[in-house]
Structure formats: C-alpha cells, structure tokens
Design a protein around this nucleic acid. Sequence first.
DNA 1: CTTGACCTTGTCATGATGTCAGGGTTCAGC
DNA 2: GCTGAACCCTGACATCATGACAAGGTCAAG
Lengths: 135, 135
Amino acid sequence: MNIGEAAHASGVSARMIRYYEKAGLIDAPPRTESGYRHYREQDVHMLRFIARGRALGFSMEQLRTLTDLWRNDQRSSADVKALAQSHVRDLTQRIADLQAMVDTLSTLARQCHGDERPDCPILDALESNTQSGQK
Amino acid sequence: MNIGEAAHASGVSARMIRYYEKAGLIDAPPRTESGYRHYREQDVHMLRFIARGRALGFSMEQLRTLTDLWRNDQRSSADVKALAQSHVRDLTQRIADLQAMVDTLSTLARQCHGDERPDCPILDALESNTQSGQK
DNA sequence: CTTGACCTTGTCATGATGTCAGGGTTCAGC
DNA sequence: GCTGAACCCTGACATCATGACAAGGTCAAG
C-alpha cells in the first residue's frame, strides 16, 4: 500500500504521515526500489491510533509515550491512566482560563449598549482595568 | 523613554513591542540619531491596552480592529460589542471541544483499573473506537 | 509513448513568543 | 578620556502541527 492509500485508509494526510515518521512517532516503512514508502494494514492501524489520540488533544510528545505503551505488552495500565489523568488536568485548566475570559467579556458586553454611540465599557475596561488578566 | 523602560512600564516585552510595530499594530515611534526608539506615556497606554486584549484571548488580528476602534472617536459601540460577542462565541466553542475531550477521557480513565496489569480501556478505545473524535 | 495521477524531497507560511548572536550606544565611575 | 556594564539594534532560529506549493521522478492505463 502506498502512502496515499494509507492516508485515505487512516484519515491521516500523507503530509502528516511523513511528518510522524521524521518525528519518530512511527517507524520508517520499507521502500520500493524507486523510493516509494510501503505500508501494511498494521501501519494503518497505528495511524488511526495516533489520529484518535490527536482528536483527544494529546500532544505529539504524549502520543510518543502512548504509542510506546501501546506496543509494550509489559506496560502497566497505571501508566496509561496517569497520562490520561494528567492530560485531563491540563485540559481542565485551559477550560478554566477560557471560561474566565468568557465571563469577563460577557459581563462587559452586557453592559455595552451597542448602538451608534462611541462610548463603550469594553474599550474602557481594556484601557484602564487592571484586573481580569488571567491566562 | 527607551524601549526597555516602555516594556517595563507596560508589561509587554521589548521583543513583542518591536513585533507589534512590524505587524502594524502600533505606529513606529521616532528614533534618536543612533536609531533608538523613543516612546511617550501615550504609547505605553496603548501597549497596556493591547496586553489586556491579549489576556482576554483576542488575536492580533482582532486587536488590530480593536485598536482602530479605540482610536476612532466616530466608532459605534455596536461594532465593539459585536467583536466581543463573536470572540465569546469562538471561546465557547473551544471550551465545548475541550470539555468533550475531558468527558471522553475521564470516562475511560474511570474504567481503567490502573494497576500493574497491561490491559487498559483507554488504549482499547484509541485502538478501535471510532466515536469521540470531535475537534 | 503519452498523459495524468501519484510519489519524492524541500521550502515557506501560519501565531505569538523566547532566545541567542553579533555589533553599536550610552552612561557612570575611575 | 577610558573602560565596563547595561542598554539598544537587527536578524535568525525554535516552538507545534499543519497546509500549500514547487520541481522532479514513477507508474499504470490508454
């Protein structure tokens, strides 16, 4: 199977398959005489694994660890669980940061009359307010 | 006031002040004979405005619009409000995406016994599950 | 044998920021 | 007046994951 077919079958673009290979996330596949990469079903399986991990917001660094665990029959599920829980904590923090922005902005927008007049509490807050700087 | 002092007074790094200048977010300040940038209080004010906007998650593109509105005495507050509300919608969508990841991962982690055994529903889901792919 | 679809590598771009390098400037203390 | 420290200048490279593009080789169907 060439890279285009593997891309189609896995949902990972050919561009990203090559990138994952260079990044050491997947093994370099054998090549034909003319240099074409050759993939097996098993490789497509791995690519789908990676795609699902990315869809769950894992970084490539985390995916590197996850794929290692996946391949390792001696892994302990505790390691996988710890990684997932750590990721959940990261995501939760990011959500809290974003939510704080939403709260601040929503409050300000509610106070803005939103007509043709120029005065606006949103701009006023950006101009002088010193709170509300989370992140 | 040199760039270092302006950076300190505004909380924006000298590096980013130059970047904002090149990006057209702020005007290029006058220079001394030897090429040093010279800033006034008013410029620091603008930099703080930008810093607060960034802390609220506005992109530089959005900041460009916001600073234009800020400087424009003929603005209508409706324009500012619309931008803020649009940004709130973006943030809310990102929160929903992240929350969906958290939900999926939390559920999987809860099902994982997390001990020294290798079998793990988290890896199983990444391997074969076809749902849970938001983003 | 031609054509079109595919493959190869490489580069540029994104967005916002840090860091480093190599070189000029300014000022304070001696 | 000289020296060193602290500042300033520009430019380049790195981040993270991805898309887009370019120039050239390969393959298969007609």
